[in-house]
Design a protein around this nucleic acid. Structure first.
Lengths: 326, 326
DNA sequence: TCAAAAGTGTTATCCTTACACCCATGT
DNA sequence: ACATGGGTGTAAGGATAACACTTTTGA
């Protein structure tokens, strides 16, 4: 059984590495996008993996990202491998099959570095406006998304998905009331909008709903399935942040606690409770004071902190529990 | 940047799907292994992905697993894609590059079905004896693993890994005291043993340590990097079980609470606290009584329960919190 | 009647959440 | 002096962990 099922010559398969490269600037999570294409759509940086040149995916990824965009990658994590036929719909039949390995990478933007070489950083909420709930539920949800999804659900109320959930239930779980909003299910929300034909990408794949014209565009589309990869990256980062200290890959070496909180809020898309956030940070000992103070914050000078690397060996899951509303 | 970096013809890359197919029988987690090879090593079922025949990886996987082993797959989840050169070390240079997509799949074993067609189920702790702490810390750890790892750490005590941890710290975190044992870091423990040259697979790759002969074999080796894939699967399942009701994919339609607890213990490798387990199951409403009773348990007849699918739409993270020691 | 496993009641402790107030600086 | 953001103390409530005991069957 370890023998290949087909014993013929190697199939014409091409491995494509696609990276969601995230940074945070001015309380906004940013994503590196390649220069816009002729169609006007943004794309994530991506390149073909050459096994002759690079020993592993990660080495290959770091190498061409560095080469092409000049962005120095810190933390890198594999997300998911997409192998659907028709991923590059227009070329599905005559061209080699493309398999895409998605990666999440974290980096820091220095001052004024928003554009580097062929790529530039864009706010990720441009592509997912409904994911930003820092100022409460996005008006887009009540004005456009819920009416359209409600109609869509009503068209086939008894159909169940693989988990036995009806359309109505899924809509309520994913876009319903504010209290039980789960910041990690970014991909599920995007998939629901795709399945119901409400995002541009669905139109391209011949799945558009008449509702898409009523509702108007929901976030900026991206080329190929890059918005799906970005959704995966957002969800993974939101989840990971809670049990691993990855957020410090996005912070400068020294920072104020408020800056740390704003970054956590930017990523999770929710407001956090100041005192509880501070208490958590303090008791979990993930940071330590540098002894310096910043007086560029507008009010009382804020103490500067740095990440305590020692927590890695002390605590099993040193993350920022982001469970407390502001 | 969305253009391929190399514009040449498709590279000779082959996509291999490898599945860790898990079931539970008699309180033992089982893994489906393909018939042993000439070398005597077990292997996970694996096959080449044919994009012409199957639209997605998952469809391809389900199809050939069903065809070759007859095992009906329930839950299926992608784990990780391995692209290291030298994965199939003996063939690295002349043969096509192989990229392996690992999958976790859950299934049920009926009575007496331990062997099906070309494959049979083996206890996963045969390959990872140190992961079974249901009867306390495995004696293997104190007798063999810790002495060998301590020597290994002493050889280069100042070397830090990518997270800034020293060898000594990693040994203590991963194999140290019982209290802070983290059941999810199966892969980290395996990688540490691999890196220190204490598992057979390292010898194959030319990384064996002289210590491997002192310590003797640590768990059964597997072909290629299949033990790494199995370690990934075990860790993922142990983690997932806590926030998604995947365990019911391994249970018969009706079961006693003790059987459920034994299954959770088998997977997590730890003993759980009876009353708290029951209270949690009860308050979380993941199960409901069928009204039947089993009197084949040896003592007082036990009430039978079934999974309540409704929790999927009620609770955001309906899993079995497995945090309570017995 | 005894072994074996099912099943329940109660309490101490810690963590989470929420409240409101004081402090130090620049303008 | 006042606006602005930094920084803290304390109490209520709920979840968690730990305790030991009763119940019902088969042998």
């Amino acid at each position: 059984m370890d023998k290949p099922v087909r014993s013929s010559a190697p199939l014409p398969v091409e491995i494509n590495l696609t990276a969601a490269i995230v940074a945070v600037a001015d309380d906004a999570p940013m994503i590196l996008v390649a220069g816009e294409s002729a169609s006007g759509e943004s794309a994530l940086p991506s390149g073909v993996f050459d096994p002759l040149a690079h020993r592993t995916f990660e080495i290959g990824l770091r190498s061409w990202v560095q080469e092409q965009t000049g962005a120095p990658l810190g933390y890198v994590e594999q997300l998911y491998t997409f192998g659907d036929r028709g991923r590059h719909a227009q070329a599905a039949d005559r061209d080699p099959h493309v398999v895409s390995v998605g990666y999440l990478a974290l980096t820091r933007i220095g001052a004024g570095e928003a554009a580097i070489d062929n790529a530039r950083f864009r706010q990720w909420y441009s592509f997912f406006p409904w994911e930003d709930r820092r100022a409460g539920k996005s008006p887009l949800i009540d004005a456009k998304i819920l009416p359209a999804l409600t109609k869509w659900a009503a068209r086939d109320p008894d159909r169940l998905n693989a988990y036995g959930l009806s359309r109505t239930e899924r809509v309520r779980m994913l876009f319903g009331d504010e209290a039980r909003f789960n910041d990690e299910t970014v991909l599920d929300r995007y998939q629901l909008l795709y399945e119901s034909g409400l995002v541009e990408e669905a139109r391209r794949d011949g799945r558009a709903s008449p509702l898409i014209d009523e509702a108007g565009p929901l976030g900026e589309p991206m080329r190929h399935d890059h918005r799906r990869i970005l959704a995966t990256a957002m969800g993974r980062l939101r989840a990971k942040m809670k049990y691993r200290p990855v957020i410090f890959e996005l912070m400068p070496p020294a920072f104020t606690l408020t800056a740390l909180q704003r970054t956590a809020e930017a990523i999770s898309g929710r407001r956090l409770h100041k005192q509880n956030f501070r208490r958590f940070v303090e008791t979990s000992a993930v940071v330590e004071p540098t002894g310096e103070f910043s007086n560029r914050t507008g009010g009382r000078p804020a103490a500067m902190f740095r990440f305590r690397r020692e927590v890695l060996q002390e605590r099993p899951a040193p993350g920022l529990r982001v469970g407390v509303r502001g």
